[in-house]
Design a protein around this nucleic acid. Structure first.
Length: 425
DNA sequence: TCTGGGGTCCTAGGACCC
DNA sequence: TCTGGGGTCCTAGGACCC
């Protein structure tokens, strides 16, 4: 059977681990640049705040209700995620890390009492990491997802919902809105509702052939999964990425190319590190710049360009150089750039790396060694990222907003929490 | 004043080949 | 005058996910 573990309001829960006084209070976590609410505690949801709300629009009201807002602290969240996954690995035959806050578990039927197992597992994750999770267990991943929704929604399940009979399956499908099914997005939901299909059960009872003709192979897969036939392929932990992007919105519009150069070099630096972490090299790089699409009083400009690299690269200086070359061709004076980014594509592994005919192999080896040394130095916990390209300037610090940042409680020694102990009477 | 970032898969259609 | 048939590869865009 499959289990699906979903961390409840994950980013909010991470912040609460280190600020337990916020448990039971309304809390939201914001996207980059303090732009939108991306994670909300149940209390914040109950007040009517929604995922995606622009912060500047809800700020006054949030303050009035005493909502505590955090800028996104993704280094903290990914470290907390790793802790949760470590526990899960000890409790299942195999796990597939599906996202920062979710994992599928492959469960041994010999476990026997799955209900007891589920309760014990969710309690253990909570105890060992501080993160509350919901677990769904069923014959297919899509059904396990539905189970986890029930576990989250109804306290009676005590964080774990088992769907192990046809009776339970049909009941669960009947109570699930079609748009809440994994794989049914906004467009498909709209089309189904127009046909009178509003529950997962109604969808599962459609004719398979009809579903396949109307919604192609992906829709058919969802249909089969809902009917108990597992057909979502397994992705063993962390498959290599095929593309990588680094992009940001800025706190203010950028009118000086020099300022944007710093951002581009920072994106190149981030991508270089990500490529080397995955042991990949890129054969193509592209960049985009965009004005503020929400501001219609301002001339709009969006452009993108790409560059084929003569050989697969993963070293920061080469990527940064390419980024700046592209920026020069994208730049137009007079437009205020609000957002920009870089994508690397056509990734290849170290083994599949084919240098160009005229490459200086000594030079390639030197660049590899240089990056390895740089990464080693920069990953030191005492002084992370101390060696940078001068062209990066102060990175993204000055050009993005993060006014509500929490500390790096788990990865920076100087940010560790202080505990005040009082002598008992 | 202020509106996120990072991915994957599938399909249709064009380019190209014999 | 008459203008085929069958296939692959690549890419952009749509849809979906977190």
């Amino acid at each position: 059977m499959f289990g699906l573990v979903d961390c409840n309001n994950f980013f909010v829960s991470c912040e609460r681990v280190f600020r337990p006084s916020l448990i039971g209070k309304p809390v939201i976590v914001l996207s980059n640049n303090d732009g939108c609410a991306v994670a909300l505690s149940n209390e914040a949801k109950a007040l009517g705040f929604k995922r995606g709300d622009p912060y500047f629009k809800i700020k006054a009201e949030a303050n009035r209700f005493g909502v505590v807002a955090f800028s996104g602290n993704h280094r903290l969240y990914s470290d907390m995620s790793a802790r949760v996954m470590t526990v899960l690995r000890e409790e299942a035959i195999e796990i597939e890390v599906y996202s920062v806050d979710e994992a599928f578990l492959h469960l041994d039927p010999a476990i026997g009492d799955m209900t007891a197992y589920g309760h014990r597992l969710t309690r253990r994750v909570r105890r060992d990491t501080g993160i509350p999770v919901s677990l769904g267990i069923a014959d297919t991943k899509t059904l396990a997802k539905i189970g986890s929704h029930f576990a989250k929604k109804y306290p009676g399940y005590k964080n774990s919902c088992l769907i192990d009979s046809d009776d339970k399956r049909l009941k669960a499908l009947n109570l699930t809105a079609i748009g809440d099914v994994w794989g049914i997005g906004r467009r498909t939901k709209r089309r189904l509702i127009d046909q009178g299909i509003v529950t997962a059960l109604q969808f599962a009872q459609l004719d398979r052939q009809d579903v396949s003709e109307q919604f192609t192979i992906t829709g058919e897969r969802t249909w089969r999964e809902l009917n108990g036939e597992p057909c979502i392929p397994e992705e063993w932990s962390d498959p290599d990425k095929h593309t990588m992007t680094s992009s940001r919105s800025f706190a203010h519009d950028i009118y000086e190319i020099e300022e944007l150069k710093q951002a581009m070099c920072t994106f190149a630096t981030i991508l270089g590190r990500k490529l080397r972490e995955q042991n990949s090299y890129a054969l193509e790089i592209s960049a985009f710049v965009a004005t503020n699409r929400f501001n219609d009083r301002q001339p709009q400009y969006f452009n993108t360009t790409s560059l084929s690299l003569p050989e697969p690269v993963a070293d920061t200086p080469t990527l940064a150089h390419a980024a700046i070359t592209m920026l020069h061709s994208l730049w137009r004076n007079g437009y205020g750039i609000k957002k920009a980014g870089i994508t690397v594509t056509r990734l290849t592994t170290a083994e599949g790396r084919q240098p160009s005919l005229f490459a200086d192999l000594n030079d390639l080896a030197k660049r590899d060694r240089l990056m390895e040394t740089l990464d080693n130095i920069n990953s030191s916990p005492e002084n992370p990222n101390c060696i940078r390209l001068a062209a990066m300037g102060n990175g993204l610090n000055d050009i993005t907003r993060h006014e509500h940042a929490s500390r790096l409680y788990t990865t920076r020694l100087s940010d560790i929490i202080t505990i005040n102990c009082k002598r008992g009477s």
